[in-house]
Simulated scan of single mutants.
Amino acid sequence: MSDRAPLRLGTRASALATTQSGQVAARITELTGVEVQLVTVSTEGDRNQAPLTQIGGTGVFVAALREAVLEGRVDLAVHSLKDLPTTPDPALTLAAVTSREDPRDVLVARDGLTLGELPPGSRVGTGSPRRAAQLNALGLGVEIVPVRGNVDTRIGKVTSGELDGVVLARAGLLRLGREDEATEVLDPIQVLPAPGQGALACECRADDAETATILAVLDDPDTRAAVTAERSLLSALEAGCSAPVGALADVVWGDDGDELWLRAVVGDPSGSPTIRLSASGPLSEPAAVGERLAAEMLAEGASELMADTPSGTSIGPTS
């Protein structure tokens, strides 16, 4: 172990958040020998179960954590990257983006059913307009029901019979060791994930060079490039994390070596219309790839679709 003082890692108190943060803490200690202590921080998104667009939308799960870092109550915070606002805070630095877990969404449904096997009229829960738009676009005749809460709460609505299924992020189930509860992994061709889904962000104060250096060992360059492209698209669309926008960038082999392939969707929560486009570009220029694809989507009318999103629909925490 290092002889320096332990790092204080700020985390939300949910089972998923503490599991994610605990995995990051263990990895820091493994690679650097520095001890890490978890410090739980209550956020507005945890305390208030109202739709997120009513309580602030973007950032409600990270604002309190960032405040704790800036005030020196903790040395770093771990966020689900999809919850992190795209507008940077100059007083903070994104010191590491960890290797991405599976970014895809999954269905947890009664009787082991898949989406295609659910009969018309089945009630499928999600608090995400992104998911609602893409599920409705499939034309399966299921009813999308707004739902919030942690993984246990959401899956419990299926086991109790209140819902026929819920859609969650596979990354959360994998980190909790509950991936076997998913009845279907949704192909991104059908449902694109949220920008940054499956990746974790490690933030510290911009003037804390020592902590930033320690965290840098966790940074995964390919993951950082992929999520930079996705988040640049989100920023250029001027869309918050509760907008009906899905995006996924993959590192693929191109004519001149590795490049980024970015797919994105903007949809009306009703399922129609939907704009779905893709672009590719150099791995070394991820932000430019995202900005270029966003410009193409805006030219197709993406702003109007996002403006029509009902105010009562919003995302929940990574799950």
Rank of each mutant, 00 (worst) to 15 (best):
R73W: 12
D89L: 06
G149M: 08
L140N: 11
D102T: 15
Q49M: 13
P103R: 09
E117M: 05
S99W: 07
A109Q: 03
E117K: 09
G112E: 10
V151E: 13
D102A: 11
P120H: 11
Q49I: 13
P129R: 10
G125W: 12
S128N: 12
L76M: 13
A63M: 01
R131I: 15
A133F: 03
I144K: 01
A63T: 10
G156H: 11
Q49K: 14
L140P: 05
S80P: 01
D105V: 10
A133N: 05
D105G: 02
L140D: 02
A109K: 09
S80L: 01
L135H: 11
A77E: 11
G59R: 00
A96M: 03
L107H: 05
H79V: 14
G57D: 01
L140I: 07
A68I: 07
R130N: 15
R123T: 10
T86N: 02
D102W: 09
P119F: 08
G127I: 00
S99G: 10
E67V: 12
R104I: 00
G112C: 01
P129V: 04
P119C: 04
D83I: 05
V142F: 07
G156T: 14
P85F: 01
G112Y: 14
A96T: 03
A64E: 15
D102I: 11
A133G: 05
N150R: 06
V62D: 02
R131W: 12
E117D: 10
A95R: 06
S122C: 01
P119T: 12
G72A: 07
P85H: 03
I144N: 03
D75L: 10
G156F: 10
Q54K: 02
L52H: 10
L70H: 04
T114H: 10
P88C: 07
T86K: 06
N48P: 02
D105T: 12
V145T: 14
V74N: 01
P129D: 00
Q54F: 15
R131Q: 15
G127E: 06
